[in-house]
Design a protein around this nucleic acid. Structure first.
Lengths: 183, 183, 183, 183
DNA sequence: TATGAATGAGGCTTCATTCAT
DNA sequence: CATGAATGAAGCCTCATTCAT
């Protein structure tokens, strides 16, 4: 397998990556042709294959970059020691999901890809799950593990609505969650 | 109420429909070719087009049948007057989602399609949402409308896990929900 | 080969024939599908094959009926003895071509078919050619045979314009011909 | 006058164009499949679509090239001042129609297309018509406009015969025309 | 590094025709 | 006589990928 070094990436390589992210997120992976990506990125179709080997390789590169971002995003939660703050920051993360355009697209892609490829990357979430479970435990919840799972499931549900239901209003739901968990 | 006309379907027509449901749910709509559907159903590819007009027509037929089933499924909840039972039956519904193979595939398709076509059919859920909101109100919840939305969002999250995370155990989550809502 | 008896033709058979004539003339033989013909005629697709054997058989039936009509049309010219009247009637025939809708469509089909199938039915015209040649001879033209061919070629040209050039005005051309041949 | 940009065409692009011209002229546009064209040109079917977008695009390319050729062909007639030569050259053009294989096929296609698409391109002929009308006027013909139309109609008729009637002998008809117009 | 011509497999769809009813 | 379900071949077109330049 090809190692993607994040340090050496030409301008065109990045254009391809971002175009692919945008198009895969908008139209889906299968429905987006490499020629569409090339056109959108303003490069030749061949270049995609020179840099990423195959269409799937391009997808992998996007997902890998995504994992890096996810790690960064989770880091400040995972290393938090105050249980109340762990929960608060998790909810903050959900809230921020709908704010930056790039971030939103990135998450939308993650979910779309999951549904297209049938692979829910459980490891990525594992660290977060443990932190939450630990936090709920400290706070004296009866079944902390289930509580953690439940909150993460809620996250999935909200992400689903955010991405698919135009009329969905996150804010009130976020407020609702904060009151519910008293954070 | 509306009278539902059940058109007489030939045996092969039904084979096509069920094969398509299975394959669309497994591989996704775009990634499933009509020839694959035909082969799986044991019919000629042309027959799909004689009966359903186009690949999209086939999808529509599946979704339409799905809406009928959803209506039937929701009916027993919507007409329930005991608020506790409304919630209990909603949770039962989530539970039963993972049990029958056909039912599971049908719901999986619904979600996959949502993500592929970007259309969350809000109307379908509207009746359920109102019933739940009403139930939470009767039970004295502070923000019944948000509670209803929250439960439905949880449903979306559980469905996501059920479909995408092989290791997911519904039962414990169902028990958790029942305890949480005291039903 | 199948003999088409003109005496026993069911109502549906005739509907098929006329629909085919209309559609072949409008869209062309190759571009008109048997299913389109069936729909237009209000019969099942199978019936076309029961009655005419194949799509080509249907075409043959139309062309055969056409030849009958052509014979009838040419009869009054061929049996005319006055040379001036032979020419006059030929020109009259051209004039009448643009008048009745059915007749017009019939001729249009004849030409379209010729161009699609590459078969100019020379025999059909042979009798007419001889009558004209004979007439020009009696009238003392130098090269009666070429004169006859020339007039028939003019007919082809006018038919082409009539069928293809919307703005074409036959009348002035007819008058022109009558003056030219003094008939 | 308009500057004609000749796009650089790859060898295969030209092979496709010529094969299509030949086959469309022989079998008709609708009846000629793109796969037949590809096979005849010795290229992959996909290449047709890369270069011409669609089957219709291929046809358009042929017709466009045809119009350029027609303009060139008509130029020497239209800029002729001697009325007798205008007519002579028009008749020469008809004569030459049957001589070069490429030229013949090109005109045959023009006519076949006209009959398949029902569009007689009147503009293309307009310049020629005016030149002829003017020439007949100078030569003292009574109805020069009708004479011009008549000659062009004769051209259509001869083209019809040339393309459709195997036994047709142009030469004698050309001689006949030359004598008739004294050119 | 970058292009874009070229390909072969496969996608959706239509077609003429057959056959059981 | 008449229907319409069913088929297999073919039609137009798009796709991911390769390769010479």
């Amino acid at each position: 397998m090809q190692v993607i070094t994040h340090f050496v990436m030409t301008e065109k390589q990045e254009k391809i990556l971002h175009s692919a992210l945008e198009l895969f997120a908008k139209e889906g992976y299968t429905a987006t042709s490499t020629s569409k990506v090339a056109k959108h990125a303003g490069v030749s179709e061949g270049l995609i294959f020179r840099h990423f080997g195959s269409k799937e390789g391009l997808l992998d590169a996007i997902l890998k970059e995504g994992e890096e971002q996810a790690k960064l995003l989770f880091a400040s939660i995972v290393f938090e020691t105050d249980p109340r703050l762990v929960i608060a920051k998790t909810i903050d993360m959900i809230e921020s999901l709908g704010k930056s355009k790039e971030g939103f697209e990135f998450w939308k892609l993650q979910y779309k890809i999951k549904w297209e490829t049938e692979k829910y990357s459980e490891q990525k979430m594992e660290a977060l799950h443990m932190s939450l479970s630990n936090a709920f435990n400290k706070l004296g919840y009866e079944t902390p593990d289930l509580e953690a799972t439940f909150l993460l499931i809620t996250m999935d549900g909200i992400a689903t609505r955010l991405c698919l239901q135009e009329s969905f209003q996150v804010e009130s739901m976020i407020t609702f969650l904060r009151r519910k968990y008293r954070v």
